[in-house]
Design a protein around this nucleic acid. Structure first.
Length: 450
DNA sequence: ATCGGCTCGCGCAA
DNA sequence: TGCGCGAAGCCGAT
C-alpha cells in the first residue's frame, strides 16, 4: 500500500480525527484512500470522517441534472454503507477547498487523506488544502491498479511504451482488496438530507437524468456480473460494432469511482478463462485507462493544442489555411444538424443516453476537426459537448480520446490529407465496411419538424 | 478479400 | 547509429 501514498505537505501527523476528503472515488468498499485513512485512524485510535463537498453553482461548470442525479444517488449509497461501518459521512456545500479546510479545522483533524484525480480543478484544490500548518495532507492513488507515479515517472509516448512497465508490475498490484472494518472509534453521526442537497445545487436542467441505467456501487457490481457472463464472450469481435451490445457499460461507474478498476480487473482475471476477449478488455481497462491518467498527470495542458505531440502540432499548423468547405456552429453540432446522418446519430446517441459508442467517438471527434475553422475550436467544441452530455465526461479518458482524434496523441502519423495533415483520418466509407451504418442511423434518428 | 504504402519517433540493441 | 514497430485507417491495385 505504501507506494500508493504520498505526502502533499510536510506537516507531521498529530493527535486528532482522520478525514478522508472524497472526490474521485465515490465508494465505500475497494477504496484504497478510505482503507488507508481507516488504517491510520485505527493505529492512532481516532474517529474517521469522510467528507464530500459540492459547489452550489454547478451550472457555471457544465453541471447538469444528468450528472448531479447520478452522483448524488451514488453518494447516498456511500453514506449508508459508511454509517453501517460507524464512519461519519458529511456532505458540505460551497467552495470545496474552503469548506473542507473549515471542516478539518473545526474538528481539529490530525491528518487529511485525499484521493488522486490528475485534472486541474482537483490538483488546485489539493494544493489549497495542503497549504496549512494545522494537519498533514496525504494523497492515495485509489484509481489506478499500478499507481500513476509508480507505473511511470514521465509522460509516456504511446501505449506500447507504458504497456511493458505496467505489465511487469501488475502481479504486485492485481490482488484482492482488504475489507473495510467497522470502525472501532466512532465519530458523532451526521445525517444528510439528500432532497435539500439536491434542491440547493443549481444545474442545467435541460439535460435530463438517465433512466436506462442505475447509478451506484451495487448497480456497478451487477453490471460487471452481467458483462462478464453475457457480453465479454464476444467482446473482442464485437466491440467495434456500435449495433452490438458488447461493451462493459462500466465507464459511468468508473468515472464516478462507484466501482474500482482493480475490482473489475481482479474479477475478470480470476473468473474468466484467459482468452482474446479478456485480454482485449483488460488492455482497455488497464493499459489505456492508466495511459490517460499518465497523460493528464504529466501534461498540464491535457485539454489544449499545446499539449499535443510536436509532430501533430506542426502538421496541423501547416494545414491551418486549408479550405473548410463545411463549417458548423456549436449549436448545429449540439442539436445534431449536420449533413452527415451517421454523425448526427452518434450525437443523438450521446444526447439521449449519456453515452456514445467507443468506436463512434473517434469518428465523431475527427469530423468536428474537419468541419471547424481550426484545431483549437474543434478541441474546445468536442470537449464541451462530451463534458455536457456524456455521463463519463470530464475524465482523463475523454481528454485523451479527443487529443488522440484531433491531435495524434499516442498515435502515429499517417498519409497527408487536407486539414488533417498526417493525423489519422476516418471516413464514412470506412464505417460502412465495418458495420451496418444504416441500422445505427435508424436506431438513433429522431423525428424533426424542420 | 488482401496487401502495401503512407509517415514519425521512441526505445532498445549494438 | 540503426531499426522495428506502433490505440482502433484509407485508398488503390491486385
Amino acid at each position: 500500500m505504501q507506494d500508493r501514498v504520498r505526502r502533499l505537505n510536510q506537516v507531521p501527523p498529530h493527535e486528532g480525527p482522520i478525514v478522508y476528503w472524497m472526490i474521485r472515488e465515490q465508494r465505500a468498499h475497494d477504496n484504497w484512500a478510505l482503507l488507508y485513512a481507516q488504517h491510520i485512524a485505527i493505529q492512532r485510535k481516532q474517529p474517521l470522517y469522510v467528507v464530500f463537498c459540492c459547489r452550489t453553482d454547478l451550472d457555471k461548470y457544465l453541471g447538469t441534472t444528468r450528472m448531479l442525479d447520478w452522483m448524488l444517488r451514488g453518494l447516498e449509497e456511500v453514506s449508508q454503507e459508511l454509517e453501517k461501518h460507524h464512519i461519519n459521512f458529511t456532505f458540505l456545500l460551497g467552495d470545496p477547498p474552503t469548506e473542507v479546510k473549515k471542516f478539518c479545522t473545526h474538528i481539529s483533524a490530525g491528518e487529511v487523506v485525499v484521493d488522486f484525480f490528475p485534472l486541474r480543478p482537483y490538483t488546485t484544490w489539493h494544493q489549497e488544502i495542503s497549504q496549512t500548518e494545522l494537519y498533514a495532507v496525504t494523497q492515495v492513488d485509489a484509481h489506478n491498479i499500478v499507481p500513476c507515479w509508480v507505473a511511470s515517472t514521465k509522460q509516456e509516448f504511446a501505449a506500447r511504451t507504458i504497456r511493458p512497465k505496467i505489465t511487469r508490475l501488475l502481479p504486485n498490484y492485481l490482488l484482492a482488496f482488504p475489507k473495510l472494518n467497522e470502525h472501532p472509534f466512532p465519530a458523532p453521526e451526521s445525517h444528510t438530507n439528500w432532497k435539500t442537497v439536491h434542491s440547493k445545487i443549481k444545474v442545467d436542467t435541460s439535460v435530463p437524468a438517465l433512466t436506462w441505467i442505475e447509478p451506484g456501487a451495487q448497480a456497478a457490481l451487477d453490471q460487471l456480473k452481467t458483462f462478464v457472463s453475457q457480453r465479454l464472450p464476444a467482446y473482442a469481435e464485437d466491440r467495434n460494432d456500435p449495433n452490438k451490445q458488447a461493451l462493459s457499460l462500466l465507464s459511468p461507474y468508473l468515472h464516478f469511482g462507484q466501482i474500482a478498476p482493480q475490482r473489475v480487473a481482479f474479477e475478470v482475471s480470476q473468473n474468466v478463462n484467459h482468452t482474446k476477449n479478456s485480454e482485449s478488455f483488460l488492455e482497455e481497462l488497464i493499459i489505456r485507462r492508466e495511459l490517460s491518467d499518465n497523460y493528464c498527470f504529466y501534461n498540464s495542458q491535457y485539454d489544449s493544442f499545446a499539449g499535443l505531440p510536436n509532430w501533430a502540432q506542426e502538421t496541423l499548423d501547416a494545414h491551418r489555411a486549408d479550405e473548410r468547405t463545411i463549417h458548423y456552429t456549436v449549436e448545429e453540432f449540439e442539436t445534431a444538424h449536420t449533413h452527415d446522418e451517421i454523425w448526427n446519430a452518434a450525437q443523438q446517441e450521446m444526447l439521449q443516453t449519456g453515452k456514445m459508442h467507443g468506436y463512434m467517438r473517434m469518428y465523431w471527434v475527427k469530423k468536428i476537426l474537419e468541419w471547424t475553422k481550426d484545431p483549437e475550436e474543434a478541441q474546445k467544441t468536442a470537449l464541451h459537448l462530451n463534458d455536457t452530455y456524456s455521463i463519463d465526461g470530464r475524465d482523463p479518458n475523454g481528454y485523451v480520446g479527443v487529443a488522440w482524434s484531433i491531435g495524434g496523441l499516442h498515435d502515429r502519423p499517417w498519409f497527408e490529407r487536407p486539414i488533417f495533415g498526417t493525423i489519422r483520418f476516418m471516413s464514412a466509407s470506412g464505417l460502412h465496411k465495418k458495420f451496418n451504418t444504416a441500422a445505427y442511423v435508424t436506431k438513433w434518428q429522431t423525428l424533426t419538424l424542420d
